[in-house]
Design a binder for these strands. Sequence first.
DNA 1: AACTGCATGTAATTGGTTACATGATTCA
DNA 2: TGAATCATGTAACCAATTACATGCAGTT
Lengths: 175, 175
Amino acid sequence: MSLRHAVLATLLPGPQSGYDLAKKFDEVMRGVWYARRNQMYGELAKLTEAGFAVQAAEGPRGRRAYSVTDEGRAELRRWLVETEPDRTVRDETMLRALLVSTLEPADALGVLAREEDVLRTELHALRGYLDSLLAEPGTDPMVMGLSLRAHIVEGMLKWTTDATRRFRAAPDARG
Amino acid sequence: MSLRHAVLATLLPGPQSGYDLAKKFDEVMRGVWYARRNQMYGELAKLTEAGFAVQAAEGPRGRRAYSVTDEGRAELRRWLVETEPDRTVRDETMLRALLVSTLEPADALGVLAREEDVLRTELHALRGYLDSLLAEPGTDPMVMGLSLRAHIVEGMLKWTTDATRRFRAAPDARG
DNA sequence: AACTGCATGTAATTGGTTACATGATTCA
DNA sequence: TGAATCATGTAACCAATTACATGCAGTT
C-alpha cells in the first residue's frame, strides 16, 4: 500500500503531526499522491502499531508529533528497492482529456479551456514552490520529484493547447 | 465517480461485454484509469440500473453485450461539461520517483533503472497501438488521449534518464 | 482429451470518502 | 470577543482489491 509509505517518507525530515503531514500532502504530494486530512491520523496510528513510527513529542492543543524509527527507515528502503511497483494510475484530468473527443466541438472547447486553466494554475504553484526550495541553502530531495511533476504538467498543457487549436481549426477532425 | 463514466464512454462505440471492456481498459485506459476485470460487471449492473446502459444482446458462453442509452449519452456529456473534475492523482511510479532521493545512491540507481525499463515498455506499447489506430481508415477518438499519455511517458522517461545521469555523475548531489 | 481463451460472477476484506463532532490557541 | 487556524479524531458509507468459484467454446 502506497499511502503508508508516502506518509513514512514525508515524516523523514523530522517530527511532524498529522496536521503537518496533511498540509505537506496538499502542497508537495498533490500531483503524485493525494490523501484527505483525516487519513493521516489513521496512517500514523498504523505506522506506530507496526513499529515504523513513534510519538516523539506532545505540544499545545493536543498536538502529537511523530518521527520515523530505524525499522521505519528500513521498511521504506525495502519497499522502494524490493517491491514491484503497482502500475495503477488514476488521473481524472487525463481521463477527461481522453473522453473529450466524444463531445460536440463546442462542448469540447469549453472543457479544454477549463483544464488548461487549472493546469496553468498548478504549474504556477509548482514553479513558485520549486523557486522557494532552490533559494534555500542545501538541495531538498523533493526538488527532483517536483520537477518531474512540473515536466508532466507542461506536457499536459502543451497537449491541451494543441487539442484546442485543432478543435478550433477543424471541428470535425477529431484526433 | 469516474469509473462509471469511464466505462460508459468505453461502451460508446457499440455493444460490448464486461470481458470486452476489461480488455479495452487494459489496452487503452491503462495510463489514465485502471480497473480490475471483475469491476466491470458491477459497473455494468449499476449503469443498467440507472438507465444509462441496456443489455443489447446475448451470445455464446453466457456473453452479455451492453450498449449505451440516450440517457447514458446525456449523462456522459453532463459529467464532462458540468461537473468539476476531481483533481485527485494517484501514480505510484511518480510517487517512487519523488521518494527515490531518500535512498542511498546505489539503491536509487537500481530503482531508476527498473522504472526506466517499465516506462520504455509502456511507450513501445503505446506507439504500437497508436500506429495501428492511425493505419485504420477514419480517426479513432482515442488517439488524442493516447498521444497525451505518450507525451507524458516520454517526459517521465526523459526525467529518469536525467536523474540517473545525475546520480551517477555526482552521487551526493541529490536534486 | 487437453489446453487456451472466453465469459461470468460472489464474498470477504481493506482502503478511501463524506459527514460529523469537538475543542484549544492566536491574533486583530 | 469573534474569526481564523491549529489540532484531533469517529462513524457510516462507498469503492477497490483479493481470492475464490464456475463453466463453455474453439483449437490442436
